[in-house]
Simulated scan of single mutants.
Amino acid sequence: MAVVAQKYHFITGLPRSGSTLLSALLLQNPRFHAGMTSPVGILVNNLITHFGAGTELGSMLSQPQRQRLVRGVFDAYYADKSDKQVIFDTNRSWSASMPLLAEQFPEAKVIACVRNVAWVMDSLERRFRANPYEITRLFGDGVERNTVYSRVETLGQRNRLVGYPWTALKEAFYGEYASRLLIIDYDLLAQAPQKVMPLLYSFIDEPLFDHDFEAVSYEAAQFDAALGVHGLHTVRSKVELQKRRTVLPPDLFAQFNELAFWQNQDGSAASVITIKPTTGC
């Protein structure tokens, strides 16, 4: 029997925006493998760093050899998933690696989960407050973690948890490979998954699957404990949008409330599944 080559697609986007929920839903399909952030992106970036220009290995490797080495990371990591026809690898760095993905996987699509950035910050702040006996690895020192203002502003820096994926996604959204990109807004995924999932299947050219939105399961307790932020990757069994008041001060909420660049699709070839954002805090 001939072995069917696996297809790869990629999940990226902002933290606290539904990527774990989306992976949990995709896992219901027996043909698919998906999960929370994998180490593949880090391994690939480290590999490229070691054979790039100016390194000891740089002159030893041809371009085809570099390509095979990078592809080998994917094949080795997912070797035990040979029973799955479609692999979804999750990493926030993929938004900044669109040229590499396009070369390695010409048919691959990139799915980016997004959310109003103010509510991303609200969600992370809630997780911080829910773990009062942890210092959490999200912050480097007491100066960064001492108040909600320092915490949120730290996370928003362009090399940190929220700022980096936001800038990387903006690069992809307006870049030359944007037609490979599908933006999924968390609010719509949580509110109407029965409408969002068929659109995703159409985008990746896969037959529809009957998902159960009342019995979703996913958690990564050990990973979250290592970060000092318990519950960060726990998915509720029922997919629904839970409305609440923000815990952020009004001025801080307003600072991040207007950063949803994907709401304006002028100048981008990306596909976007979203609803108009609600206002207020």
Rank of each mutant, 00 (worst) to 15 (best):
V4H: 07
S38E: 11
T274M: 07
F32R: 10
K84A: 11
L199N: 11
A79Q: 15
P64Y: 12
L181A: 10
E144D: 00
R92H: 04
V272W: 15
N264Q: 12
L43F: 12
A225P: 04
T278P: 04
E176K: 13
M36N: 04
R245C: 05
Y186W: 05
A260I: 12
G163D: 14
L169D: 11
L47G: 01
D89A: 07
D224K: 07
V229L: 07
K243E: 04
D224N: 13
T246C: 14
G163Q: 13
G35C: 07
S237T: 13
S179C: 10
T49Q: 02
D205Q: 11
D212C: 07
R145F: 00
Y186H: 07
F203R: 11
K276L: 08
V40A: 03
S268D: 10
M121L: 06
K81Q: 15
M98T: 10
R16N: 06
A172C: 14
D185C: 06
R16S: 08
W166N: 09
T37E: 05
T167K: 08
E153R: 03
V162H: 05
V70I: 14
V196A: 08
P15N: 14
H230Q: 14
S82Q: 11
I275T: 05
R115L: 03
F105T: 01
L259K: 14
A102R: 03
Q263K: 12
S268H: 09
G142T: 01
R180K: 13
N91I: 02
E107G: 07
V272G: 15
E219R: 06
G231Q: 09
V86K: 13
A172P: 08
K81D: 13
V196D: 06
I184E: 01
V40Q: 02
N264A: 14
H211W: 04
T246E: 10
E56H: 10
T20A: 10
P277N: 09
Q63S: 15
A269Y: 14
T90P: 02
N146E: 03
V239P: 06
Y218L: 10
L155D: 02
Q263C: 09
A118N: 03
F105W: 01
D83I: 12
Q6Y: 10
L69H: 08
Q157P: 11
P64L: 10
M197T: 09
L22E: 04
G267I: 13
N131V: 02
R180W: 08
G175W: 12
P64C: 09
A254S: 07
R151L: 03
G52I: 08
L21S: 04
G72E: 13
L61K: 09
W94S: 01
M121N: 04
P64D: 11
R92D: 04
D187V: 09
L22A: 06
F10H: 07
L47M: 00
M121R: 02
I42C: 04
R66N: 09
A226R: 04
K276M: 12
V44R: 08
S123P: 08
S38D: 06
T279G: 11
V44H: 08
E171Q: 12
Q85G: 09
T274K: 06
P132Y: 11
E103P: 02
F209T: 02
E176R: 15
A226E: 02
F256P: 09
R236H: 12
R244Y: 11
G142F: 01
S59T: 15
D122N: 11
L182I: 10
E240A: 03
Q67P: 04
A118T: 05
K84S: 12
E144V: 00
D187I: 09
N264I: 13
N131F: 02
G41A: 03
K109W: 07
